[in-house]
């Protein structure tokens, strides 16, 4: 038996590799988890999409649990998720704050007029500096932020009702309950 043991080492190594490969099939190598989970959203001071004179700061957002949605008019999948966002905001289950990323103001305004405006506040990040601080690497991305401004979840890709109901809603309820 001992004799076989030595020659079975390659088989064992292969078995381990195969196990990882199997696990790997269910993972997405392009999805990058945010190191900002559990940390406060970055400081910023930016105008809104509606008005270049209105300046929004980080503290203005505190006090409520909200979704921070990064969007842009050049982004195809933002259009795909927009309807979901509008439905969510109408349901009143959660506030949605927009972060308009590297976009043009008139285009963004036209988009909202045409497709509906789900956002309570819509921040205009022309240079994308705040997006960098948020670790945004593509649009759309959605963050779940609590009333103290702490990030609890990040989703890269379009928002869906399933995602909202199954993952986000329980977290939102929990956060509202706590604070």
């Amino acid at each position: 038996m001992n004799r076989y043991l030595r020659y079975s080492i390659p088989l064992f190594i292969f078995a381990i590799i195969a196990a990882f490969l199997f696990k790997g099939l269910g993972l997405n190598p392009r999805e990058i988890p945010s190191p900002l989970i559990g940390k406060p959203i970055p400081e910023f001071s930016l105008p809104t999409v509606e008005n270049a004179e209105t300046i929004v700061n980080k503290v203005d957002l505190n006090g409520k649990v909200y979704l921070l949605n990064v969007w842009a008019t050049w982004c195809v999948s933002c259009r795909a998720e927009h309807e979901t966002l509008v439905r969510l905001s109408r349901s009143g289950k959660v506030d949605i704050v927009g972060l308009n990323w590297k976009d043009e103001r008139d285009k963004a305004q036209a988009w909202l007029r045409q497709l509906g405006d789900p956002y309570t506040i819509n921040i205009f990040d022309k240079k994308g500096r705040t997006a960098i601080d948020l670790g945004v690497y593509g649009a759309p991305e959605t963050f779940l932020v609590d009333s103290k401004g702490i990030i609890h979840y990040k989703h890269a890709g379009p928002m869906t009702m399933t995602l909202f109901n199954e993952t986000l809603l329980p977290m939102i309820e929990d956060l509202k309950h706590k604070g």
Partner: peptide
């Protein structure tokens, strides 16, 4: 394989 292993 390291990135895959770490992720897994």
């Amino acid at each position: 394989l390291a990135p895959l292993i770490y992720d897994a």
